[in-house]
């Protein structure tokens, strides 16, 4: 059983991602956050659930306050501090196809994949493989 977080300031894109994840039937809960800080608050405000894979985090890049890369960096720090969630899988979901953003994603800790919006069915299958491999 797995939980997922969608971190995106565009509500409509959260909606699309939510529908996509729901179609896979793999997630017990899908949480939404409109920026990085909101995400970290929700993740560490949640009850710690051991023995679960994930969570899977779908991270947008351009967001107010903290962008997706900064949020991933902040998550890594929190992870070191709290010791969980060790199996977290972060994937970037962005409308940007810029090589610069892909390169930066590769260098960002915890980030395992890069997906261009809009999300399609096969993107979610890919994410599930990453999750299983983790």
């Amino acid at each position: 059983m797995t939980q997922a977080y969608i971190v995106d300031d565009r509500e409509v894109d959260r909606y699309t991602a939510r529908r996509r994840l729901a179609k896979s039937g793999r997630f017990t809960a899908v949480h939404e956050a409109e920026d990085g800080r909101d995400f970290l608050d929700k993740l560490y405000g949640a009850v710690r659930t051991d023995g679960e894979k994930g969570p899977l985090v779908l991270m947008d890049i351009r967001m107010p306050l903290m962008d997706g890369f900064e949020t991933a960096e902040a998550l890594r720090e929190k992870l070191v501090e709290h010791g969980w969630p060790k199996d977290v899988v972060v994937v970037i979901v962005s409308s940007s196809g810029a090589p610069m953003d892909r390169q930066r994603a590769m260098k960002t800790p915890l980030v395992r994949g890069y997906f261009e919006k809009p999300l399609r069915g096969h993107d979610v299958e890919e994410m599930l493989k990453l999750l299983d491999a983790a």
């Binding site: 699309t16 529908r19 409308s95 919006k117 809009p118 069915g121």
Partner: peptide, 24 residues
């Protein structure tokens, strides 16, 4: 230009995502 192209592209991408869901 990065910012502008994002601002112009983002809504189209959103619409494309929604329409794909509708088709499915």
């Amino acid at each position: 230009s990065r910012s502008i192209s994002h601002d112009l592209k983002a809504p189209l991408v959103s619409v494309s995502g929604l329409l794909t869901l509708c088709v499915e």
